[in-house]
Design a binder for these strands. Structure first.
Ligand SMILES: [Mn+2]
Ligand SMILES: [Mn+2]
Ligand SMILES: [Mn+2]
Ligand SMILES: [Mn+2]
Lengths: 220, 220
DNA sequence: CAGGTAAGTTTGAATCGTCAAACTTTTTGG
DNA sequence: CCAAAAAGTTTGACGATTCAAACTTACCTG
């Protein structure tokens, strides 16, 4: 099995290459996401290439091999099931579970994981709305567009939150913006680079368009 | 915080010195319990002494400092609460949970731990009958005597199992011998070094006296 | 008490993961 | 096209944890 460190690199490379148009991750981004210096990331990626988990050439981008990708998805499944458990069963606040899962994901065995999955009745998304990969590594495709792309008057449903920071999560939850809630885009103000959203039963909230990029929604 | 390795040494020294008459643990025993060579144990204990977690002198026994003991008890609390959770909530078999908890105990934060404690309604013993230390480090004293010390005809109640091996645990569970069950000592045969126990609703079972040392019971 | 055995210690080496700092290559904006 | 800037690579070092093997001390047994 991959070490805890390697598992973190796998996740980082996986999610970075996911959102990059080239399908490759840069060293700098890998280093930042894993909280390590660029030199360290470079060294470790080379080691991962030796272990047939990643593929890269000097000064070129990094991508995972099939083996590496599968391993990354496994870690992601563990992470998301654990987050779901922490919120659903232990009633922890969704704003803190990401950090907790970051450590537990490396210590849980597949026996415990599958028991957790059964206990939670095979959830399909985690508390942030991210899809939970199946035990076979299959992931349901994610739909939706950033809140920032909706026009005033749009009726939306929050699908996912891509910023896992506790402060942001707490802030938006106070205004009802959690995965599943419905809301209306009340206004956009291009001069102020702001967008105002109103979830029924909550006070309307105005936030920067940049912040609204982290809220993925569907038309509703 | 202590590293995962150090936490394992802490637990080993703690439980060994607990059961030793001198209150000290030997290097050989520490090494065996942690699955490491004696040289490594020696090196690590010296390091722990430097960190004021253990106290020892060359060629003398090892004991924990107050700080070390407190840290060891914390790990034990985590271990036992996790075991309880795995059995009670996730319905895993008690014969395997020890090994699982051995890894998870190092990854769980106090926030998650206390949430687990609440979810389980503050259990006082783990699935093997071992007491769960309180968050303050207090441990209820353990009563009972080894099954091997009871005379034929004794009515007993199983209190704890001190052998955490899956094979032994599965074996005795098949004969109803879990913490809490009542049974009668049907016979002892000194020539065969055996003892026969009968739990109501189960077939009587004969085992070596040495094996019966691992089953702690009270008169009932 | 004298050996012999068991227990404990030291040393030298290896692996893993990391950093800082020097260096190299690529990219980018005039 | 060309000089900074950004990105990436290497090297040397370090701390943590471990092993094997040589060595030392303590404990027992006849
Ligand atoms: Mn992690
Ligand atoms: Mn999540
Ligand atoms: Mn452990
Ligand atoms: Mn136990």
């Amino acid at each position: 099995m991959a070490s805890e460190a390697i598992e973190n690199y796998l996740k980082a490379i996986y999610s970075l290459s996911r959102e990059s148009p080239t399908g490759e991750a840069g060293m700098k981004a890998i280093a930042t996401l894993t909280g390590v210096t660029v030199g360290t990331a470079s060294t470790m990626v080379k080691r991962m290439a030796g272990a047939k988990l990643a593929k890269y050439e000097r000064f070129g981008g990094v991508r995972l091999t099939a083996r590496g990708e599968r391993a990354a998805i496994d870690v992601q499944r563990r992470h998301r099931l654990i987050e779901t458990f922490l919120v659903e069963t232990l009633k922890l606040d969704w704003s803190i579970v990401h950090a907790e899962a970051e450590r537990l994901e490396h210590a849980i065995s597949s026996v415990v994981l599958e028991a957790l999955d059964i206990h939670l009745h095979h959830p399909s998304v985690d508390p942030h709305g991210d899809p939970i990969p199946g035990p076979d590594g299959k992931i349901r495709t994610e739909r939706g567009a950033a809140l920032s792309t909706f026009a005033p008057g749009s009726k939306i449903r929050v699908a996912r939150i891509t910023d896992q920071g506790p402060a942001f999560l707490s802030f938006i939850a106070e205004h009802g913006l959690r995965p599943g809630t419905k809301a209306i885009v009340a206004a956009t103000e291009s001069a102020a680079q702001s967008i105002t959203v109103h979830a029924s039963g909550y006070a309307a909230v105005t936030m920067a368009v940049a912040a609204a990029e982290s809220i993925i929604c569907e038309s509703a």
